[in-house]
Amino acid sequence: MAKRDYYEVLGIAKTSTLDEIKKAYRKLAIANHPDRNPGNKEAEDRFKEATEAYEVLSDEKKRQTYDQFGFAGIDGANGAGHDYSNVYRDFSDIFGGGFGGGGFEDIFSSFFGGGSSRSQSRGQGGPDVGSSLRYDIDIDFKDAVFGTKVEIAYSHQVSCDACQGSGAKGGSGTKVCPTCNGVGQVRRNSGFFSVASTCPTCNGTGRVIENPCTDCHGTGLKRKQQKVKVTIPAGVDNGSRVVLRGMGDAGANGGAKGDLYVYVSVKPHKYFVRQDYDLFCQIPISITQASLGTDIEVPTIDGQNIKVSVPSGVQSGKMLRVRGRGVTKLNSTDRGDMYIKLLVQVPKRLGLKAKKIMQDLSEALGEDIAPTPVPFED
C-alpha cells in the first residue's frame, strides 16, 4: 500500500509551525498508543505512521528534503529504516514528562528498541519490502470513455546485477557491526533515562559489509529508468488509479518489490461533461424548430452523428435522452446514457421580412402583454 503524505497523516497544513506539528502528533499518539488500544492492529499502525511522520517533519533538514523530493529524498524510505532518535529527544517536550505512568522507554520500546521484533529482524539483516511509487498521467476525455494504452517512463530501484543484490563485492560477506555489536541500536544516557536509537553505522541491521560493491556502493540496489505500457480501462474518471503490482522499488536484502500506482487525471471536453457514466451536452435550436418540431443531427462522443427528434412546442432547457451513448462502464461493455439539453435561441436581429412574419405570428397567437408570474421549478 502506498504511503500517505506526512502532512495528511498528522492532519496539518504544509505551513504548520513546529509547535503545531508537536501538538498534532501528541493528539494522535495519545489516542492510538497500544497501551490504550490493546490488540488493536489499526491503532498500532496509525501510531507508527504518526511517529514516522513526526520524526521527519519535526526535523528542519529532513522536512525541507521531504518537501522538495517527497519520500524519495528521505533516508530509509527505500528500506534503510527510520531513525527515531529525534522522537525520543522531543518526547518530554511533547508529553510533559511521561505517558500513563511510563517513561520514554516504556512507550517506544515495543516499536523502536528494547528487543522488539522489528529490531530483531534488522539485527538479522532480514529483507525489507520496497517502496511503492506514484505516477500521474493526463488522458483525453474520449480515452477515459473508451479506454486506452499509455507508455510511461519512470525511475525506480532494482536489485544490483553486479552483486546480486547483496551489496557485497565479489561474493564477500558481512561482519558484525563494530559500533552496536550486532544489536542494531546504540544507547545513550539522557538524564535518568537510557535512550535507544538506530545504529548510524549499520542502519539498524546489526551487520556491515566488509567489501562493498562498487556498482551500488553496498546498498544492493541501483536506480533504473524504465518504460512500461499501462492499460487504462474504459470508464475511468478523475482520481482513478491503476495499480501495477511489483513495479515499484525493489526491497533491500532480497525483499519484495513495491507497487506502482498510476493516478489518472482526465482532461475536460469542449462540449461534453460527465456525471457518473452519463454524458451531457447542449444543443441550440431556433424558435421555429422548437415551435414546429423537427429532426436534428447531434454529434456523439463516438465521433458519429445521430438523428434526434425534437417535439413541437419544446421549451428551452428540455432534456432529451439517448440510451447507450454515454461512458463505458468499468469492467463491462454496457454504457451510460447521453442527455441533450435543448437551448432555444432568440435571434438578435431580424430582417424586414422576418420581422413582418413575427408580427403576424404575434397577432395570430394573441400574445398576453400582462403575463402572470410562474413559480420556479424544484
Rank of each mutant, 00 (worst) to 15 (best):
Ala2Ser: 09
Pro178Ala: 01
Pro38Ile: 05
Glu297Ser: 13
Gln359Trp: 07
Thr231Leu: 10
Ala144Leu: 00
Thr300Cys: 05
Arg349Ala: 11
Tyr66Lys: 03
Asn32Arg: 08
Cys202Asp: 06
Ser119Val: 15
Ala80Arg: 08
Ser194Arg: 11
Gly254Glu: 04
Asp136Thr: 09
Gly204Lys: 02
Ala43Thr: 01
Ala31Gln: 13
Gly79Trp: 01
Leu320Tyr: 02
Asp75Gly: 10
Asp360Tyr: 08
Ser194Gly: 12
Val158Tyr: 00
Val158Leu: 05
Pro233Thr: 06
Arg223Phe: 08
Ala354Thr: 11
Thr198Arg: 15
Asp259Cys: 08
Gly254Gln: 05
Thr214Asp: 14
Leu330Gln: 12
Ile296His: 05
Ala24Gln: 06
Leu28Ser: 11
Thr294Ser: 15
Phe95Cys: 08
Arg4Trp: 08
Asp67Trp: 01
Arg188Lys: 15
Val298Ile: 14
Ala364Leu: 10
Gly102Val: 12
Gly173Ala: 09
Gln157His: 11
Tyr154Arg: 07
Leu57Thr: 01
Gln120Val: 09
Thr148Arg: 04
Leu28Pro: 02
Glu367Leu: 15
Tyr154Cys: 07
Thr288Asp: 15
Glu363Gln: 13
Ile232Gln: 06
Val346Arg: 13
Lys27Arg: 15
Phe112Leu: 10
Ala31Phe: 11
Val310Trp: 04
Glu55Trp: 06
Ser332Met: 08
Ala50Asp: 03
Thr328Gly: 07
Leu320Asp: 00
Asp360Pro: 00
Val264Phe: 06
Ile283Ser: 02
Asp334Trp: 00
Gly97Gln: 11
Val56Arg: 00
Asp278Val: 01
Gly125Trp: 08
Thr205Leu: 07
Arg323Tyr: 09
Asn203Ile: 05
Glu210Ile: 13
Phe112Lys: 02
Val264Cys: 04
Gln185Asn: 11
Ala290Gln: 04
Glu60Leu: 11
Leu10Gln: 05
Ile340Tyr: 04
Ile232Cys: 07
Cys199Met: 02
Cys163Ile: 03
Gly97Ala: 11
Gly102His: 14
Gly366Met: 07
Asp75His: 12
Gly326Asn: 06
Asn40Ser: 08
Ile74Pro: 01
Arg4Ile: 06
Ala144Phe: 00
Asp249Met: 02
Val327Gly: 02
Asp278Gly: 06
Ala2Gln: 09
His156Cys: 14
Ala80Val: 00
Gly254Met: 00
Phe111Gln: 12
Ser119Arg: 12
Gly79His: 01
Asp35Trp: 14
Gly218His: 02
Arg187Ser: 15
Val87Ala: 10
Phe69Thr: 12
Leu18Ala: 11
Val230Leu: 05
